[in-house]
Amino acid sequence: MFLAALAVFPLVQLLRLSLSDVQVQNLHRDWPFIGLENFINGFTSGVLTDGLLNTLVFVVIVTIIGLIGGIAAAVALRGTGQVTGALLGLMVFIWALPPVVNGSVWKFLLADDGLFNSMLSLFGLSSFPFLYDERYALISVAVVNAWAVIPFNALVFRAAVLNVPDEQFEAAQLDGATPRQEFWYVILPALRPTTLVLGVLTIVYAFRSFDFVYVMTKGGPGASTQTLPYLSYQQAFVGYDFSAGAASAVVAVVVVLALAAVYARSVLKEESE
């Protein structure tokens, strides 16, 4: 019960904050209720609108690459050999490294004199502005974030693949199925329920992820990689406008609430089957 209270308490406080006017002066005193003013300000100034759009792009990239990459890795690594074990170990090692390490590494690798641009220059191409051009910075950070979740998704998907009964593969092979057909008609259907749970977890992760933005671009150039979680952090803990920060977080919560409803519906459906 205490734990439940502990888990719910911050959510309640967050909602209250988002509807009040709270700066550093009155954080520990009264919180005057101001209704939706924080949200209205955020949307009329465009900060929240931009943040929301950036977040949606970010979430779509992380989710799609994260899930497809996870499935691809799981299928490619469904053996039990030593190479497979080594590759999985490598991925888990990377997954366990903190974002400040992973993000910094990619910041270096994607810099002008970093590995990727050095390779491009070998082919006579000029440097690609991965992180400092507004068109590519958000995509670069999102792809790195997807890279960081693939190991987790791959592990879970792989276990689901391993759970497909051997007989099904044998039957498919007896029928002369190609590896591609095997993938489409045996593996993929078996992964459907796993995809649902992982999809939800990945989307939620992408919606709240701010570490990589913080480490790699600080929201820049300008505000072009400012996603809602980063915006919220920055408003609350750099600008000390706690209620504006809470409002930005609540916008993300509301979007996820809609997704949660979809998930809940599919859970209900699954139960009535």
Binding site: D133, V238, D241
Partner: peptide, 18 residues
């Protein structure tokens, strides 16, 4: 903080050509 952050963002946006 709000002024400093906005100043930093404008600086970054101008230097980055955003």
């Amino acid at each position: 903080e709000a002024v400093i952050t906005a100043n930093g963002q404008a600086w970054s946006a101008a230097l980055g050509g955003q």
